[in-house]
């Protein structure tokens, strides 16, 4: 597969490490969240046949974490964003 890196352009997926569902961005605060909520965050995943937002790490590249939107049926990749930008836009900060 080829991932069209938002800064570096098309790069072979071999250079990346896959993590999983981009919902991992929404980590609850361990001091305030219930164990149940944290459990769901840690373990529960949708498994869509179709578009899936997922985290990829450009380990053999610029070390950027990316949010890749990929069709799990066709492998078509429709969007690639820097995870840091996505995380900020979705409310993550410090």
């Amino acid at each position: 597969m080829i991932i069209n890196h938002p800064i570096l352009g098309p790069r072979d997926a071999q250079e990346f490490v896959y993590l999983g569902d981009a919902s991992l961005i929404h980590r609850p605060d361990g001091l305030t969240a219930s164990i149940e909520a944290f459990h769901d965050y840690t373990y529960l995943r949708a498994n869509p046949a179709g578009l899936h937002r997922e985290l990829w790490y450009h380990e053999q590249g610029d070390r950027s974490w990316l949010v890749v939107t990929r069709n799990t049926v066709t492998h078509e990749i429709t969007s690639v964003e820097l995870a840091r930008d996505v995380a900020r836009s979705e409310g993550r900060s410090k």
Partner: peptide, 19 residues
Amino acid sequence: AVTVFRHLEYCRQVLWPDM
């Protein structure tokens, strides 16, 4: 060594991007 570094990058880019 490699997986910890990857994890640290994940924490600073994905979880706490403004640190």
